[in-house]
Design a protein around this nucleic acid. Structure first.
Length: 558
RNA sequence: UGACCGAUGGUGUAAUGGUAACACAGCAGAUUUUGAUUCUGUCAUUCUAGGUUCGAGCCCUAGUCGGUCAACCA
């Protein structure tokens, strides 16, 4: 690190600039309080991670705080299961909220706010059906017309609203609306709904309420009640801002301020909760945490690290234009972190047997191997070299092209951390498939003590055929075959990648894995980064491929 | 065919009236007992047309393209 070069000033996104300006002008007496407001009706995904990193990151950077507020105003969709998973994901990402709050905590206060608006003549009870209301609402190009119920008196409205709360009316029979402007070009200002009747059991308030506030009548006031200084949300809420401001102004409460940014889009995946739920329900994936999903829980299971995800969110930036981030950038961030911390191990996932003719049968030669060349403190481990070993099938070619510097008939190659071997004979089955290689090794080529004078270009990973452990390995590819599964001719489900999961039942891994912690991150040498799946048992190890190594040979050879 | 928002290399993000930069991807090379990592080099950018200004990616006007808005969802 060059500490003298800090004059080079840091890139601030537009929200950081706004916050710095507000802090400087003491707009909120120099205070900063953000909030992350998920609706507990699904699992968090990488798009939420962007919002989490933004909201919590701002507070961390500028000495503020962040509340976690569950936006639970719709009893029919929300569940405690989701509350728990959301809390777990935020903690796992490495953030701590100041207060854990629920919009439902404010139901009584919101009710009082509604009464205030009724008394000011700014809200009325409407008896119209949803259809009638839609007809009066107009369209974006035509103004709406007044509801026939706007003429009710304050007393009448107060009475009706009280009786709504008391459960005297059926669902859909009555609503409470704000009286604003039916001709506004902004549809959200055309007498928006404040309350609807819903006789549902709420995950926290039980059966106490039968009227529930709409998002617009709850969100801004909740921010205001908590004295949130900066209420950050995604672009589609921009048209809601005049209403957000209107409620705060009419109620004369704390002026929280909403700022919008563009949500994250990633190619080769979908991000809407509805679509993710569909993938789960229709069994395209095994669950919300299927490692192919873009959810936080799936990424955790797949072996992505919080550091990598945070760094990704930092790298993509924050702006107001629509964007589609390349999935490859996320993978880059994951590799970047895993390269530093992953333990190097050897595993052969598509084995080809080699018999080393001049190596004594039954002999075990103990070799030393670095656990992580990027981290000297990670130390070394022992590997067992034997007469029979496995190498990767694709590391041998009978008729290799010019630039192939792995094993070929008559050729030499180094076995990583072991010896140089020479391929003497190729054994095939009746179908002509290569089933075994007979080789000889160069005894004086032992790694670290090589006096053979032979130089080889290729270095292969290997596992003893007699001293090993077997394991299941799950390989993942992108979930969809097209960059943008939304906006295709057919429904998104038609574009699910049929090869997004490959299960290899019998991979051979080095014995040292028996000593490794379940939480470890691994690099299978020359194959990629892997981690234990939660399905693992001591008798049956299961690995997930987190992400492959950058593979320039794959590019050359294709 | 209304209102609002947006438009900078292939993808993202900076530059806040004064030399268009950074990351990823791509390409070329060096190092390498991982075809990894690391390092070096390189390609490539201001939607269009007017205007203001000594000077415009930035300000103004018009157009083009893209997004959002008409749930008793959030």
């Amino acid at each position: 690190m060059n500490h003298t070069a800090n004059e080079e000033h840091e890139k601030l996104n537009f929200i950081e600039q706004l916050v710095e300006e507000d802090l400087k002008t003491k707009k909120h007496y120099g205070r900063l309080l953000t909030r992350f407001p998920p609706e507990p009706n699904g699992y968090l995904h990488i798009g939420h991670a962007k919002s989490i990193c933004l909201n919590f990151g701002l507070a961390l950077k500028y000495g503020g705080k962040t509340n976690l507020r569950f936006d639970d105003t719709n009893p029919e969709k929300e569940e405690t299961e989701y509350v728990e998973s959301i809390k777990h994901d935020i903690k796992w990402l490495g953030f701590e909220w100041s207060e854990e709050l629920y919009t439902s905590d404010y139901f009584e206060q919101l009710y009082d706010f509604a009464v205030i608006l009724i008394k000011k003549g700014l809200a009325y009870v409407d008896d119209q059906t949803a259809e009638q209301m839609a007809a009066h609402k107009g369209t974006p190009t035509e103004p709406g017309t007044l509801s026939p119920y706007t003429s009710r008196t304050v007393e009448e409205n107060l009475d009706l609203f009280t009786r709504m709360r008391a459960g005297e009316f059926a669902e859909g029979e009555k609503t409470l609306r704000a009286r604003i402007d039916m001709t506004s070009p902004n549809m959200h200002l055309r007498d928006p709904l404040m309350y609807r009747i819903k006789k549902d059991h709420h995950h926290r308030t039980g059966d106490k309420w039968c009227i529930y506030p709409m998002y617009d009548f709850a969100h801004g006031q909740s921010d205001s009640i908590e004295k949130i200084t900066h209420s950050i949300c995604t672009l589609e809420f921009e048209v809601h801002r005049p209403l957000y401001d209107w409620y705060i102004k009419q109620l004369e409460i704390y002026p929280s301020q909403q700022t919008e940014f563009a949500r994250l889009n990633l190619n080769y995946t979908v991000m809407s909760k509805r679509k993710l739920l569909k993938l789960v329900q229709d069994r395209y994936v095994s669950g919300w945490d299927d490692p192919r999903m873009p959810t936080i829980s799936a990424m955790r299971r797949r072996g992505f690290t919080p550091e990598a995800i945070r760094n990704f969110c930092d790298t993509i930036g924050v702006a107001r234009r629509e964007n589609v981030i390349d999935f490859g950038l996320l993978e880059f961030c994951v590799r970047e972190h895993l390269n530093k911390i992953a333990l190097r191990r050897m595993a052969v996932i598509d084995p080809l047997k080699i018999i080393i003719a001049n190596f004594e049968e039954g002999k075990n030669e103990i070799l030393s191997a670095e656990n992580n060349p990027e981290d000297p403190e990670a130390g070394n481990r022992e590997m067992i070299f034997t007469r029979e070993i496995f190498i990767e099938h694709e590391d041998f070619m009978e008729n290799p092209p010019k630039k192939f510097f792995r094993l070929a008939p008559g050729g030499y190659v180094r076995l990583k951390n072991a010896f140089i071997i020479k391929c003497d004979e190729v054994i095939k089955d009746d179908a002509g498939k290569v089933t075994q290689l007979n080789c000889t090794y160069v005894p004086e080529s032992r790694s670290g003590h090589d006096t053979s004078g032979i130089s080889v270009k290729g270095v292969l990973h290997w596992v003893s055929a007699t001293e090993n452990i077997t394991a299941e390995v799950r390989l993942y590819d992108r979930l969809f075959t097209v960059e943008n599964p939304d906006n295709q001719e057919k429904e998104f489900l038609h574009y699910v990648n049929p090869d997004s999961l490959k299960i290899l039942n019998k991979a051979y891994i080095e014995k040292h894995f028996a000593l490794d912690s379940i939480d470890s991150k691994f690099q299978f040498l020359r194959l990629g980064y892997f981690c234990f799946d939660k399905d693992s048992t001591p008798q049956h190890l299961v690995f997930n491929k987190t992400v492959g190594l950058k593979d320039s040979w794959a590019k050359i050879s294709s």
